[in-house]
Design a binder for these strands. Structure first.
Lengths: 243, 243
DNA sequence: CGGTATATTGACCCAATTCAACCTGTGTGG
DNA sequence: CCACACAGGTTGAATTGGGTCAATATACCG
């Protein structure tokens, strides 16, 4: 919210909000010190491009604050978002220099960056880092494959409901109704869902008209009963969230 | 083709066709011996289910021969293939017991299996294995994301052309015309592409009528000019394949 | 205030699905 | 050897979900 994030530039890792979820989660003592000595922070404003598709990527990084998107595009301009990066997510691929996707800041973003060759050396020497990265990569692979089901088989209404359910679930406090601010514009949502802006807008309006969600300004979404929204999303397994 | 694959059961790893591409690629000497002592082979016939969605998966394995599919499905029966496993590909997720996808043999399949706990112990002790698995997982992540673009943004004709181009390119010998046998039924293709059987069939017929491909029986596909097919697929970058 | 970026809504259209019929090859058993 | 069933594949006609094009909010900012 406020711009105290820049204070992070000199802060030690123990106060870092992603300390226990990022690549560094499994590091301690000297390993953590070594990572800390390599790190530097950098911030981008919402909308700025962080890496161009196909460009060399001389660093790897963890998202500390904010939300970034990974998109892949075709020559004629069609675009598909292939990943949504949130705090603690990892950017970059050790062992490969070029980025196959465009990375754009969806909100203001702060990342914790490491020089790529130095990070690769460290990976080779400390199995903890490689192990954690493998675990995170496998989670991302699962997420990508789940999203393939959304893209390939769900209707527009189900797609929009799926996205809203994800955002609302992540923002979940105990309080009802659930409330969240969408970190994405309609255009970004469309790019994520394999739809057009107009269809996303229409489906959001339809879900509102049907009483599944309510809107609070342009970005805020409220939902009284997440299980109804999840049914609309086609995911009927209530993961023990109700009651 | 013939069932000599069963002879592999006692064979040593150096004669294994995937020796240099699978998880074991980076292993040598004692490491390889250790893996070899843990391994066992098992085969499935085309169409057989290898693992049910959500089932416990007590092993990890490499595909040695054949082709298997990973699919995820919804309660109402809609299905989406989320991965196509070919020789040297890895099945299973160290660190997680349940399989989030159904694994089915598309053709006759032989796998080289390892007990999961034993494999996990080995991963913790030999960084080579973990490193290779990370590399392979990142490749799969790239592939999954590429496929998200196909599912989210391509037309039916482009989707079919994309799949044919992949199959033809993989089967590529120097000989023209390129020829390949589809390892997938129309149904499996539809499940992969997020289409219906009928649409797949129509698009194949259309590509044939337009002279982009020719058919040889039900499964054989011929293509005189891969770059034409790739243009139809919407991938215009000719990766230095022509001349 | 205009001016620009984002969002909503309507009318029309088309690509892909749905539903249905029919083809083709491959067994299987009388 | 033929008849038959059955699975996989093709083709046609009708329907529809989402895209396209266009007009109209709504908000934000200098």
């Amino acid at each position: 919210m406020t711009r105290i994030d820049l204070q992070l530039a000199k802060s030690d890792c123990n106060q870092c909000p992603i300390r226990h979820r990022a690549v560094c989660a499994s590091c301690d003592g000297p390993e953590l010190d070594r990572l800390a000595s390599m790190k530097s922070y950098r911030s981008w404003k919402a909308g700025e491009t962080i890496v161009l598709e196909g460009d060399a990527l001389p660093f790897v990084a963890s998202i500390v604050i904010g939300c970034a998107t990974l998109t892949r595009s075709m020559e004629d301009g069609r675009m598909q978002m292939v990943g949504l990066l949130l705090p603690s997510d990892f950017v970059g691929r050790p062992g490969r220099a070029a980025a196959p996707y465009e990375v754009v800041a969806a909100t203001d973003v702060t990342m914790c960056m490491f020089d790529r060759p130095a990070f690769e050396t460290m990976m080779a020497e400390t199995p903890h880092v490689a192990g954690r990265l493998l675990e995170m990569s496998l989670d991302e692979l699962d997420a990508a494959r789940d999203w393939m089901l959304v893209l390939g088989r769900k209707t527009a209404r189900e797609k929009v409901a799926t996205l809203l359910a994800i955002v609302l679930r992540r923002a979940s406090t105990a309080a009802r109704p659930l409330r969240a601010d969408l970190p994405l514009t309609r255009e970004a949502m469309a790019t994520y869902l394999g739809l057009t802006i107009e269809t996303v807008s229409r489906q959001i309006s339809a879900l509102k008209k049907d009483g599944v969600i309510r809107l609070d300004g342009k970005r805020g979404v409220l939902c009284d009963d997440l299980s109804v929204l999840m049914t609309e999303a086609g995911d009927d397994e209530d993961g023990g969230l109700v009651d």
